[in-house]
Design a protein around this nucleic acid. Structure first.
Lengths: 146, 146
DNA sequence: CTTCATCCCATTGACGCCCATATGGTCCCA
DNA sequence: TGGGACCATATGGGCGTCAATGGGATGAAG
């Protein structure tokens, strides 16, 4: 499996660490990602995590515009100023910093959610609520087309 | 890592000094930057800090424009007339001068914000507010890309 | 003489690195 | 088919190192 799929919830220990699910770690290994790029998602109260390719994609987007434009400046503020590099410890855990806690509301447990080329960190209750909402919206949309 | 990324907030001590985050210092070392060039950001109430290459980049930008345009003139006034050289002490700290305080509103704490090829000094509250605003604007403008 | 910047050293608290234990699942063999 | 050995993952915690910070001492400048 070369993509991030499914979700899992793990517990944060007393030192603020949490194990990345083994399935995700093996995807990271397969893609040769040892340094993780994390940033605050633009839409959801979640942290998105991926490799440097993620950052590269954003930077290309900035470079495509005028790099001195206010829009580019603003984008850089988000992806550079709002991004962090993280590396896993020997056991495949990462630190849940205040940077992550404040933005997501995470405190005791973390839900890891696969998103194909990256994965996300969610507060468990927030993920369940949003997933339920998405399911409901799809149900209504599907009914219209019957 | 070879570029400035993420953000961190440090405290100014009684002598007006503040530690540059270790991650940023290692980027400076990697790029062989020992003399820092500081100037006022064009868009935000923040001080931008980088090596001489930064100055080069802006000078090229000015040259690319019409050098006699109001924008180029203004830019030159800011980066040449408003720039300051700073060097770190043995522990990797820099002095927060009145030049920096007046423009940014910094008083007790400083937020260091990575911007790929340079980093910035922000008043913590101002950074949080403007970053949140940038995210909101992008969320409204960028619904299509999700 | 006073003020301020620079150099040097001390403290402490966080983080990285390492090893130990628990828990749940799988496979093999009786 | 049931039991048990084995393995991988998740989790807990000790300990050393380093970054962040505080403060004294020295030297230069007004």
């Amino acid at each position: 499996m070369n993509r991030f799929l499914s979700n899992a919830t793990n517990r944060i220990d007393a030192k603020g660490r949490v194990s990345v699910p083994a399935a995700f770690r093996s995807v990271l290994a397969e893609r040769n990602i040892q340094e993780l790029y994390c940033f605050q998602d633009f839409v959801f109260p979640a942290i998105s995590v991926g490799g440097l390719d993620l950052l590269d994609r954003f930077e290309r987007q900035i470079a495509a515009d005028d790099p001195f434009s206010p829009a580019a400046n603003q984008m850089s503020l988000l992806i550079h100023g709002g991004g962090v590099f993280v590396k896993l410890d020997a056991e495949g855990r990462l630190m849940i910093t205040d940077f992550i806690r404040d933005f997501t509301g995470i405190s005791g447990d973390v839900t890891f959610v696969g998103r194909a080329d990256h994965f996300q960190l969610w507060r468990p209750e927030a993920f369940l609520a949003l997933q339920a909402q998405a399911r409901e919206e799809r149900r209504l949309a599907g009914r219209r087309s019957e």
